[in-house]
């Protein structure tokens, strides 16, 4: 409705955004190279291959036997370190889940 006002405020906002970005250029220059390496590690990981044996004992992996049904129902990783006094659910306190037939 009051489009002229909006136009002016839009131009002002964009102008301010541009000048802020010009001041902050390079200030936000992304991360140290160590962090960058980790990021490459995630995005460059191969997922297709033509080898066999990832699940066989001879392939140098220590995986569980994927045919068996033995696995843990309770999350037991870094989540146990995320408990927070401000968190009402207390994410660190894990309850065993009894899956039927799992």
């Amino acid at each position: 409705m009051n489009k002229s006002l909006t136009t002016a405020s839009l131009a002002l906002a964009l102008g301010t955004a541009l000048s802020l970005a010009a001041v902050n250029a390079h200030a936000d220059d992304m991360a140290k190279s160590a962090a960058k390496e980790k990021c490459f590690g995630i995005s460059m990981k191969a997922k297709n291959d033509c080898k066999a044996g990832a699940g066989t004992t001879c392939a140098g992996t220590s995986h569980a036997d994927y045919q068996g049904n033995a696995w843990k129902n309770v999350p037991a990783g870094t989540c146990e370190k995320t408990a927070s006094p401000t968190s009402p659910t207390g994410f660190g306190q894990l309850k065993e889940f009894n899956a039927k037939g799992a």
């Binding site: 995630i42 569980a64 994927y66 696995w71 843990k72 999350p75 037991a76 990783g77 995320t82």
Partner: peptide
């Protein structure tokens, strides 16, 4: 490989069950 933080959060054993 796609969900490394999820795996770290729940641990390798739980992740295998979840992924299966």
């Amino acid at each position: 490989d796609t969900f490394p933080v999820c795996r770290a959060l729940v641990g390798a054993d739980f992740f295998i069950g979840l992924a299966r």
